[in-house]
């Protein structure tokens, strides 16, 4: 297999976007990067630039204003790309389902590959979600993880 396909699996660069979440999952995503969980040991690097990213990690329910931003970010990420919806409200709207400005889960706007439930999702679950996304990506590229 090619060097690019291997590298993408061995060192995926992720970008985190917060829709309109309560922050709970966002700080758990950040906590994944810090010494106790330290996802960098798996080669996972957090990026601020969508054009550098392979995996988009989205937290929180989509509201009417972030829908456009989220779609824009998704389109900027070069393929093949994976989307992970983190947290109960990212997957379905959760506790905010009857709020007037909330559209629902991330999948209302962009296709989602992996759903990580939990309110707030634990860092272990988020790391597990990234691994699941990589397995999916490996299958898509026809290479072994």
């Amino acid at each position: 297999m090619g060097i690019i396909a291997t590298s993408r699996l061995k060192s995926p660069w992720i970008m985190h976007f917060d829709n309109s979440s309560c922050n709970g999952c966002d700080i758990e995503v950040l906590a994944c990067l810090t010494p106790l969980y330290d996802v960098e040991r798996f080669g996972i690097v957090n990026m601020g630039n969508p054009k550098h990213a392979d995996v988009l990690v989205v937290t929180g329910p989509v509201n009417r204003r972030t829908a456009r931003v989220l779609k824009n970010l998704y389109e900027q990420i070069p393929g093949p790309k994976m989307v992970i919806a983190v947290g109960t409200c990212g997957t379905s709207g959760g506790v905010f389902h009857n709020c007037y400005n909330v559209l629902g889960g991330v999948d209302k706007v962009i296709p989602v590959d992996v759903y990580v439930p939990g309110c707030a999702a634990r860092p272990e679950a988020i790391i597990d979600g990234v691994v699941l996304a990589l397995q999916k990506l490996a299958k898509l590229q026809g290479v072994a993880l």
Binding site: N63, R64, R65, A67, R68, Y100, N101
Partner: peptide, 11 residues
């Protein structure tokens, strides 16, 4: 400020 173009009016 809070609402987007397609949000409900005076919610």
């Amino acid at each position: 400020m809070m609402l987007a173009q397609d949000s409900p009016v005076l919610p």
